[in-house]
Simulated assay, not measured.
Amino acid sequence: MAFSAPLLAGSLDLTARSDEDTQQDVNLKPAQVIDFAGVKEGDQVLDLLAGGGYYSELLSRVVGDKGAVTLQIPKAYLKYAEESLEIRLANNRLKNVTYLLSEADNLKLAENTYDSAFLVLGFHDMFFQDKGWNFTADEVMPQVLKSLKSGGKLLVIDHDAAEKSGIRDVKSLHRIDSAFVKADLEKRGFKLIKTSKLLENSADDHSKLVFVPELRRQTDRFVMLFEKI
């Protein structure tokens, strides 16, 4: 589905944030992404595997005082995100954001609560295990489904992989095949309702690790919005 010019893109306040966040805006296009997901004032939003909370801060501005954001990460993320989170959440500066440290076997998510969930660059991590890392889709996604209200939305953004590669490259390249993602989530109680080319990059041939300098934050990423059936 073609992506139309969003209303929110011109109205979301992107100021008074860290230099690092602001620098990322050019490639991540957060206002357009949030508009694509349909987040509005008063919503309850789950930011799953939220990392340093880049999206949580922006979502907090969109949902406003009558809404709320849950910033969820597992302990394994702390070595990458703890410093950023301490700065972002210092002095209760994001009053409508709840920081949730939880694991795959019990995410501690209230059922039938969220209008939408954001899963940005994290779904591929649910398809491999490593030392200190075990956050599988089979454990996590049923809980996410239950946490969403009827008709709730799930936004999934990830680094695209080679066609028909499935989950072959999830650990080695941190990529996942978009066709696999659609099929997998539609088996788990979600329905794909629209996609966007907003973060596509045709110069990325899907053969390289996403962290190499020339692709850092510029990978070819699919953007999908699902709905809880």
Rank of each mutant, 00 (worst) to 15 (best):
L7K: 13
L48C: 07
V39L: 08
V62P: 09
G122V: 03
F135Y: 15
E227Q: 15
L225C: 04
S56R: 04
S102Q: 03
E86W: 03
N134H: 14
S102T: 13
K149D: 01
I34T: 10
L119G: 07
L94C: 06
L7R: 12
T113V: 02
Q44E: 11
G38N: 00
K182D: 09
F222I: 12
T113D: 02
T136I: 05
I34N: 07
S172L: 07
E163N: 11
N27D: 13
L100H: 05
D204P: 10
K146T: 08
H206P: 06
D184K: 15
A50W: 05
M141V: 14
P213E: 11
L209I: 05
N92D: 09
D130E: 09
Q32G: 08
G10V: 06
H206F: 10
N92Y: 10
V144E: 01
G10E: 09
R217K: 12
A37C: 12
D125Y: 03
F211S: 13
L107G: 04
T136R: 15
T98V: 08
E200F: 14
L8K: 02
F222P: 03
K153W: 02
K40F: 10
I176T: 12
S84R: 14
R88D: 00
Q129S: 13
F211K: 14
V39Q: 07
E82Q: 14
E111W: 00
H174Q: 00
T219S: 15
L12M: 06
V33F: 01
F222K: 09
D35V: 02
E41R: 07
D177P: 03
L119S: 04
D160K: 11
H159P: 00
L198F: 06
S56H: 09
T98G: 02
E83C: 02
I87C: 05
K75H: 13
K171C: 05
L48M: 02
E20C: 01
A16Y: 00
V210G: 10
E214W: 00
P142C: 13
D19V: 05
Q72W: 13
N91G: 07
F135S: 05
A68C: 02
S172E: 12
V97Y: 05
G53Y: 02
N134F: 07
I167L: 10
D21N: 05
P30I: 03
L100K: 14
D65S: 14
V210K: 14
D125S: 01
A161V: 11
V156D: 04
I176N: 06
W133N: 07
A5Y: 11
N96E: 00
E227W: 03
K208W: 01
L119A: 11
V144Y: 11
A76Y: 11
Y114N: 04
M1G: 12
G132T: 09
R175K: 07
P30S: 01
N201T: 03
A162G: 15
G151F: 08
F3A: 14
S84L: 13
Q218Y: 12
S196E: 00
L71T: 05
Y77N: 08
A5C: 12
L145V: 12
D43I: 00
E227M: 06
R88T: 01
T219R: 15
K208M: 10
N96R: 04
G67Q: 06
A137N: 08
V212P: 08
K191Y: 09
N96Y: 10
M126Y: 03
D25Y: 13
L14E: 04
A16G: 02
G189Q: 01
L8D: 00
E200P: 09
